[in-house]
Structures are given as C-alpha cells and as structure tokens.
Computed example of a mutant assay.
Amino acid sequence: MIRSMQVTDSPDVLALLHWMDAAPEREVFAPSARDGQELQLDCEDSTCLVDAGEDGVVAYCAIAPFRDGMVLEGPLSESGQVAGLLKKALEQAEGLPVYAFCSRENTPVRDALEAAGLTPMHSTAFYTAPLSHFKETDVPDGYALTNALSIADYRALYRAAEDAWAGRLDWTPEQFDAHFAREDVKLVALTRNGKPAGFAELEFHPDDAHAEVTYLAVHPAERGQKLGRALLNLAAAEAARHPELRTLRTRAHDHMKAARTLYSHLGLRHSRSVVTYLLEGDEEA
C-alpha cells in the first residue's frame, strides 16, 4: 500500500538508506540523515511516501523543492519494484520540472525513471586521491595567487568558464560574503595583471577526512597554460594544511572532457558516476 510516511516508518526507511550506502551502484539522491531524529528534520520540506506491506516499508520515495522545480529523493527498494511509488511521487510535482539523480549502474531505478518519462541530461564522474599523492607546485610565472575575489570578478569568471553553474549568479553580495566567510570553504585563485584567470573552490569535510573541489574554473582565454593542473595542486596544498583531512575529491560532467582528462593524467581514481534526470515541467502549470 502506497501512503504518506509516518514516524513509525523511520526504522524501515533508515534501513533502506543504510542498504543503499552498502554499495555504490545503489546510490540515488536521498536524505542525508542516518538516524531517526535527523530523518524527521530532513523530511520537513519534503512530501515523503512509502510502499508498506505486512512486514513493513518495502520502498521509499519523496519529492522536495529544488532549483526551478522539484527533486526526487529515491526511489529506494531492495526489490526494485518502484513504478507505483514513483508515479505517486511525481503527481505531487503539479506540473513543475522534476530532477532525479542516481548511479549510472543503478539499472532498476534508471529504467523506472525513464519509463516514468524522465530524460537523462548528463552524467557526473567523481574522482578521488590521497592528499599525499599531489606534488607541491609553484605559482605559474606571470600569475599571482589569492584567496579572495570580488563578487564581480567571481561572477565574470564563473559565467565565462561554465554555464551550468547559473545558480551562483543569483547570489546577493551578502550571500557571497557569507559563503566565503565559512571556515569550511576556501578559494584558491590565480590572477594575471590583476584579472582573474582561474580558481578552485574547496569545501572541507573533516567528519570523513576529505576536501572537495566543488568548482574548478579556468577562463577560456587562459586555457592551454596548464592552469587547471596548477590550481588542483595548489588546492591540494591548501587542504593539506588541515591535518584532519586526508583525501581530495572532485567531479566533472560528461561534456567537461578537459577536466576528465586532467584528473586521469594526475592519477585521480574514478570512484563513481551519477546520472542527472529531468522531467520537463508543464508550461501551462
């Protein structure tokens, strides 16, 4: 029976989340919570549904606000039988676009998403390497290293380097300042003649001892100078200043061939790939 999730369902839903964690090929976008109290907080802004039988919850799916529409959490089921639950969750979108994310190897969920009308947009490859793997590097000749950019320079480089990052362009100056004031965020940027040439943006995750390169950008006019390699090494050196961090992680969409080649040449290991799906919204809604 498909119904709204109840508090008493939390142990079964958490069991599904831990089941997902046990194998990378089961990955879908899901609540970050891994205990009951956190799960209740995570579900406050979501419409959470379960498929429940006599033995408890056998599948979970939720839908929540995201970007210009909604995002699916799940669907999750050990049996792979999620079509009915997925259909019910999509009805909650009320004509808005719906995004979904799942492992490239998660064939049962990918088949269900595509059968429900969602279209694969692109895949994102994730890479990792120990911080000890990276070599110390000097700032390239003719460039200067800085840990801060003005919002105007950041936006200009952001816009020139990668159009898929459009969400950052909507930040107010207050949001920009607040983001880079965070202790777990660091910017490593190169400038030439006072103009931004590229940057690597880092987020620190001491709980599992890794730093993540959330964005790596090189201005098109500066490409071919091995700045991507320099920025990645400089970012690794910045992360290595924090003894609680051991690993560097980064990612690249499938159209970012230069970034993928760079990560492979530098010896980062490909750990997994996630496919982004979209169900187009109803323009009349």
Rank of each mutant, 00 (worst) to 15 (best):
A239E: 01
G281N: 07
V7L: 14
L248D: 02
L72H: 03
K186Q: 12
E284V: 13
E183Q: 12
G117Q: 12
A64T: 03
H253R: 15
A144Q: 15
P11I: 06
H255T: 11
L157G: 07
A64C: 07
A152M: 07
E27K: 03
K87E: 15
C43D: 08
D254K: 01
Y277Q: 01
L16H: 00
I63W: 08
D45N: 10
S123Y: 02
Y158A: 02
M5F: 10
E222M: 10
D282P: 09
D170T: 09
V58A: 11
H265A: 15
Q37I: 11
G53L: 15
A144T: 13
S271V: 12
L118H: 03
D55C: 06
L234Q: 00
G74R: 01
R249H: 06
Q92L: 09
R3N: 04
C102I: 04
D163H: 13
E203V: 13
H253M: 12
L248H: 01
N193Y: 08
A221R: 13
D141W: 09
L131Y: 00
H205R: 07
D21A: 08
H265G: 03
R260S: 10
H122F: 06
A148N: 12
C43T: 10
H255M: 11
G80L: 09
L14G: 06
E38S: 09
H205T: 06
